[in-house]
């Protein structure tokens, strides 16, 4: 198991966003987290890189283990270098070029060697399936790209620091269908080397890209299991109602 979550509870102020969530994520698999708005799915992934606690009133309890080590014992900075994150809206740094965006994390780590930076940038952009589109204009601003390209740029930026886990918080929700297809194809390729947790609103997407699916409702983990099984033969009535579109 790459990640084990045991009895995770999370709050915003007095508002409890996650209640006693326990689940495990095997190495190099894709877990989709689905559920209606406000069910705690974003909070769940944001706990995994301890981004949740950067918000003023937020706190969490329970145990999250990454490779046998409790993430509570990590320095958050170190943890986030091993657990990368892609956000709902593409958020490249607007003052930086494409190249600078991809290498931002490496430069924060203190890497200064230009050749090394450029070669890692090329590898990361290739992994993110963006290289062919940007190789001629690496010095143009990152925000000059289209929305879908910006999101792949952000994926390249996350990959450049060589993480083991990728968290994706509704990575396609602001993208058009073609860009969405690009990202989904990318997830298929990335699962070979990375453990991926993807939050999505889109059930077809969950069914397409994931090995396992977790269904959250009002902070409770209602059902968790192999994606095929969960979508064809759910155990819980609420899961069935949600995936057939009767609520949510």
């Amino acid at each position: 198991m790459k990640i084990k979550i045991e009895k995770l509870n999370a709050w915003f102020g007095k508002n409890q966003a996650l209640k006693n969530v326990s689940l495990a994520i095997p190495v190099n698999t894709v877990l989709a987290v689905i559920g209606p708005s406000g069910c705690g799915k974003s909070t769940l992934v944001r706990c995994l890189n301890r981004m949740h606690e950067t918000i003023g009133s937020a706190k969490w309890e329970g145990k999250i283990v990454l490779d046998e080590e409790s993430i509570a014992d990590f320095d958050p900075v170190t943890l986030r270098r091993r657990v990368g994150m892609i956000f709902q809206r593409p958020n490249p740094f607007p003052t930086m070029s494409i190249l600078e965006n991809v290498t931002a994390g490496l430069r924060l780590n203190g890497m200064r060697n230009k050749k090394e930076l450029e070669s890692i940038a090329e590898i990361s952009l290739k992994k993110a399936a963006l290289w062919e589109e940007v190789k001629e204009k690496l010095h143009q601003p990152g925000v000059s790209l289209s929305g879908g390209q910006q999101q792949r740029l952000c994926i390249a930026r996350a990959l450049a620091v060589d993480p083991e886990v990728l968290l994706m918080d509704e990575p396609c929700s602001s993208l058009d269908p073609i860009s969405t297809t690009h990202i989904e194809e990318l997830i298929h390729e990335l699962r070979e080397h990375y453990t991926i947790v993807i939050v999505t609103h889109n059930m077809q997407q969950a069914a397409r890209v994931s090995d396992d699916t977790a269904f959250l409702y009002m902070g409770d983990l209602v059902e968790h299991g192999a994606t095929k099984k969960l979508f064809t033969n759910p155990k819980e009535k609420r899961t069935e109602e949600y995936i057939t579109g009767r609520f949510g």
Binding site: N49, M51, T54, V77, T78, L79, R80, R81, G84, M85, F87, N91, P92, F93, A104, G105, L108, N109, C154, R157, A158, V161
Partner: peptide
Amino acid sequence: REAALALGA
């Protein structure tokens, strides 16, 4: 800010 934090800043 989150973009930077997520990179381990």
